[in-house]
Design a protein around this nucleic acid. Structure first.
Lengths: 187, 187
DNA sequence: ATTTCCATGTAATGAGTTACATGATTGC
DNA sequence: GCAATCATGTAACTCATTACATGGAAAT
């Protein structure tokens, strides 16, 4: 099967409750958005494919609140089995692509202030992300206090939090280095 | 121009010295491999395109040591200008895709031991990466002690090092959580 | 003898985003 | 009245890996 992880991301979320494509998109951004993303262009065709294979099943076809009709999908037993079978498979790590580090690597050729500006932008983004992680942790801990999956969800949030903290520490160090590049970085 | 960063990665490396596609591939893995990668399928066509635009220029066409002939490319003034113009452009962050965190997020459905095994594998990989960063830092600091770009190179290595250290800390915490999921993670 | 490394290139395949088309409803 | 949100879907396009084809030379 091609793109097994994308399919199983949808299956995993549908194991929580039946949803339509639009719901899935929103939930993805809120829940697993900091380490996974799917666009509409992926979600809708994938849902059709999953339905064709019997891993999800079209549920009610409601026109909630007079809006355009929503096609809700529910996971099937086959879908749950597929999810369970996928979890133990070895994870493949994606080839990294960090444009900030790439530009910094060639930073000697950049006009004055360029590198600093990129890092400052990165600091803002990282700070925002860190704040979001903390907020989500608290909201989730309260709203889903007794949910059996809560510890797993918090684990992934902790990852984001700890990496973001490390990035902020690096940012300060890097800005210091750029002020006096001759000194380099002591090991 | 499509794929500007991939092109500029090659231009940046060619600004160090003229190289053939094979050299570039090797140097990419050694120098920027922990945050950027290019496959042969990208490198060779890109080199042709860059040559057609006059950003690189085919240099000697030698059959070094009796091997198959190597097509060496050198960066041109136009290529240097393109690189310089690209550096200040805003960096775009790639959509993250971390299969380990995805599987952990749905970890409640996994057979016993699955999550632990994934994290253990991640620990080994991260430990190896950390060791590699430290080695490269030392080698580079000695071999290129007076190179004006050394501080920039070390900066990117530091990033890898600090993030890897944070990941190792998270790993230990996460393994602890998996032993007693009821306790969750205190904030 | 056989594997590994050097060296270049193309074709097939797979992802995955963005833009577009459509249209109702809700809030400002 | 207008923008934003809800809702689904397709088409075009970009990006990138993998596999394949070729073949000499060096190392084991």
């Amino acid at each position: 099967m091609p793109n097994e992880s994308g399919r199983c991301a949808l299956l995993g979320l549908l194991s929580l409750k039946p949803m339509c494509g639009y719901d899935l998109r929103r939930l993805i951004q809120y829940s697993i958005g900091h380490f996974w993303s799917e666009s509409f262009g992926q979600i809708y065709p994938t849902l059709h494919a999953l339905a064709a294979e019997g891993l999800v099943r079209p549920a009610r076809h409601t026109a909630t609140k007079g809006n355009r009709e929503r096609q809700v999908y529910a996971i099937t037993d086959g879908g749950r089995a597929t999810l369970k079978a996928w979890l133990p498979l070895p994870t493949r790590t994606q080839t990294p692509r960090n444009e900030l580090l790439l530009k910094l690597f060639f930073g000697v050729h950049a006009p004055p202030g360029t590198n600093e500006a990129h890092i400052q932008k990165f600091r803002e983004d990282t700070q925002k992300a860190l704040t979001a992680y903390c907020q989500t942790e608290q909201q989730l801990s309260r709203a889903e206090a007794n949910h059996p999956e809560l510890p797993y969800w918090l684990m992934t949030l902790r990852y984001g939090r700890m990496v973001a903290a490390a990035e902020l520490a690096w940012i300060d160090e890097a800005l210091g280095t750029l002020q006096s590049p001759k000194q380099g970085m002591e090991v």
